[in-house]
Design a protein around this nucleic acid. Sequence first.
DNA 1: GAATGCATGGTTTTT
DNA 2: CCATGCATTC
Length: 755
Amino acid sequence: MSTTSTDLLAGLNPEQVRAVTAPAGPTLVIAGPGSGKTRVLTHRIAWLISEQGIPAWRILAVTFTNKAAREMRQRVEQLISTGAAAGMTMGTFHSFGVRLLRENPGLLADRLGVLRNFTIYDDADQQAILKQVIANIGRDPKDLPPRRVQSRISAYKSGLIEPADAAETAATYDDEVMARAYAEYQRLLRRANAVDFDDLLILPIKLFDTAPEVLEKYQDRFEHILVDEYQDTNRVQYVLVEALAQKHKNLFVVGDPDQSIYRWRQADIRNILDFQKSFDQAQRVDLEVNYRSTARIVAVADNVIRLNRDRIDRKLRTDNDDGDQVSIRELADQQHEADFVVSEIRRLMRDRNLNGDDFAVMYRTTAQSRVLEEAFRVSDLPYQIVGGVRFYDRKEVKDVLAAFKLIVNPNDTISIERVIENMPVGRGLGPKAMETIDQWSIVTRRTPLDGLIAVARNELDAPQLSGAARTAAIKIGAAYDELQKLEQIEPLTDLFDAVVRLTGYRDQLAHGDDDQLERWENVLEVRADMEKYDELEPGEALAAYLEQVALVADVDSLDDDSRGRVTLITLHSAKGLEFPVVFITGLEEGLLPVSRAVEAEFTDPAAIEEERRLFYVGITRAEQLLYITYVANRLTWGRYQPGVASRFLDSLPHEHVRDLGRRSTVSPRGGMSLTGRAQTLSGLSMSTLKPAPIPPKAQVRAWSAGEKIFHPKFGEGTIIEVQERRGDQELAIEFTRHGQKRLLASLAPIELITD
DNA sequence: GAATGCATGGTTTTT
DNA sequence: CCATGCATTC
């Protein structure tokens, strides 16, 4: 046993040891980026089990993503044995919440009115239900956008505010409308036997309120609770954790206030800042030594985050080598930006013998990923995208999943609408027929689908419908009658085959045009996805699969087969990850900081600070090399908009920064304001950077033979001849891949390759 | 009820 | 620019 102890603590620095071996009681670990946070958490758990004799099943660890939970489990298993680590509860707040609900189906149904076969509604489902809500309260989605209502409801829920409280405290007309919408939303949600993401945290709390003996059971069980990324927890999560830790008070939380980036999701930074006030005699350990990044990267990160006013002053330290300077590069537009990233990665792979998976390309908004993805697609570099158009968000995937959800939960109104609208089995049933069925279902006191199943079995008279609608209604009832039976006895993939057959979806897609065939391919991927659930008991497999689908995060898709691939990822999703080489793209006003934060600059300065933290998160993902790019012109909604370099570039200390220079040509759309742009640059953002000479009035640089250039269409090439033509130059260029071309310097979108 | 065509507006970030 | 939603037509 004692040898295990030394093994466990070997290689940890004194602060890390202090955290890992912290005595019982509430503990706060403030962990700077790259300071070994995950190590501390995994070693702490291993230490608790092997040294303190805590049984694994009495440990609860909450992480931000399922991937983090998976990795943490593996790491603990490596430290002690797999057997010893078995039984630990690890997952996200949401998956843990679902688990609590699933473990108490009786109470859930009796006290909270949610049946055990509930459906988890995602963002799109919520939107759909909110449209109904807005109509029901007599409003128009045009002046009451579902998005707004949704975020308001989520804010209510995150603050544990009930519809009645919302109505009572409403101060304005808008508040009243929102409160009404909230109440109606809850009504429809419960009628569909569905829960939203917030419910997954709130319902357990309510469960505990109505059944203290259940809470006590969990309090007893979870002797040690550990929470990662504590800076991004919200009020509900705090209440849940606080309740569970009440008995043993062994709450070990790890986080970094400087990396709090989910304020918009009601994350409350006070949870971490006030931890020592909330929990008596909480100990605190600060991890400040960065082991991840070069000294220059650490210095740059520190300089950036220091500009936030609302923060605890801390200084990051590192013993690592200086490393290379951080590279800054301006490009003509996002096309050039993407090409630059691709060619630079290719160069580094060659010159520094790096692998694709050593690189990450980050961006603020998912929309930016498109152009980048395209550039990678035409290149031969393998890549993977995190947070683009999600697979599960594709229409055909949602359609087929809706058909499955309906098997488990026939009350799921949103799914039945989806199936009827989009699948052949619903043909013949329009809004009018649905209205009739809804009325009929109230009279027969069954859910519409249950009623139709009964009709198909000749147990009930069909609703008053015209011929075609009647046939369709019976057909759908018969289909689900059969699917419900099959679900109990068949493996999931066989059930899949039955679903696509009985809904007619296979016939529609598999025999359609190319477009439809592509959709069919995606639907088949769902089938492949289901294969790993075939070993589960029929009757349980589907619910487990649907739950997994509802709770996967974008980053969860990043797994073992990421080997060799460049990662394209949003800054938000990149939290917690690290890469030898990082590119942060789109460092422009309106993008990073995002426009909404810029607009709120004076009314809500915290918004810009959060953007700065996001930038900080991006910077601190890099181990060896960091590139920051921005463009002079960005194509948004089919228009080129002049880009303004981000204010955040000002805070980069110039001794650690290398300006790779600007684009040397006029942008392809013809002479967007290079001069105007240059003024903005030198006057505003680049002032602290190494001044790069901007030749006055020379909008087109003088080219000479022998120079290597890059052309977005033709790729790399070498200038072999230059002919002067009254203020312009005609260039003969030998392209590596496209042979010789003659181009006019003033028109060609070419750039000098500087290396 | 389905197909076609036109208008509109949308880009934060995600469990 | 694109996807979505609505209106018009058959």
